[in-house]
Amino acid sequence: MAKLVLTHLGGPTTLVEADGWRILTDPTFDSPGRRYTFGWGTSSRKVAGPARPRDAIAPVDVVLLSHDQHADNLDDSGRALLAQAGTVVSTVPAARRLAAPNVRGLADWESTTLTAEGRPPLTVTATPARHGPRFSGPITGKVNGFALHRDGEDAAALWMSGDTVLYDGLREVARRMPVDVALLHLGGVRFGFTGPVRFTMTAREGLELTQLMRPRVVVPVHYEGWTHFREPEDVARQALSELANVHWLTPGTPAEI
């Protein structure tokens, strides 16, 4: 299988280069220092800026937007980028809210195929995600993961989890879909008034999922840069240390995977 080139830009934001396609996940390019509200009394302050500015990333053919309702996955500068992208693939509710001609909303397990002159077709499949404990959907909103399939290949060249806890929907992904590279959103997000309740995977949950999924490479992202992350890189590295196939990206530095 041809390699992917990944460049982690900070938070969830990762540039994926494959077969001439430039694919960006969850664009966040605002400067650090600002506090953002996430609704229902939750908020977080951004403490790290992007490894590269937004203008240095152009052109972008595809944006995979796991959800639009939280600024740590789509901030103001990221929203400005959406209009410049060829196609934005997101959730059905996000497509309604964004209401732009280049945005496609996918339900769980729905696919769309992208074509461009001089490049092989690229199929994007939406996968289940749950951004918190059971019954948290009305509060946290709909989230998708996304899988990229090259033309003629059954296995996903790349699967991004989106912001999610480990639950049966992710286990279904592991059962149904062979994955080459797994881009895992970690960080163990918690907020003060919600106590021990987590809204994204911990590294131990990422380890459990990886053992079920068995991808060739695991790439952790979205575990630092905001005050609501409670499991930083050193903790995640320790939890995932028994995996031989973990690749930690250096922000701003392209890596062939």
Rank of each mutant, 00 (worst) to 15 (best):
M1S: 14
T7I: 06
E17H: 11
G20N: 11
R22F: 03
I23R: 02
I23S: 02
D30L: 01
R34I: 10
Y36V: 04
A51M: 05
P53Y: 05
D61A: 12
S66C: 14
D68C: 14
N73W: 00
D75K: 04
D76T: 10
Q84D: 14
Q84F: 09
G86T: 02
T87N: 07
S90R: 10
V92H: 04
L98Y: 09
N102K: 08
V103Y: 02
G105W: 04
L114C: 06
G118K: 13
R119C: 08
P121T: 02
P121G: 02
S136G: 00
P138L: 11
I139E: 00
K142P: 11
G145D: 10
F146E: 10
D151I: 04
D154H: 13
A156C: 03
L158C: 02
W159I: 06
S161I: 13
D163F: 08
D163G: 12
L166R: 08
L170Y: 00
R171K: 13
P178D: 03
V181E: 02
L183A: 03
L184W: 07
G187M: 15
T194F: 13
R204V: 12
E205L: 10
E205S: 11
T210F: 00
Q211T: 02
R216K: 14
V218K: 02
P220I: 01
T227P: 06
H228R: 12
P232G: 14
V246C: 07
T250V: 14
I257R: 07
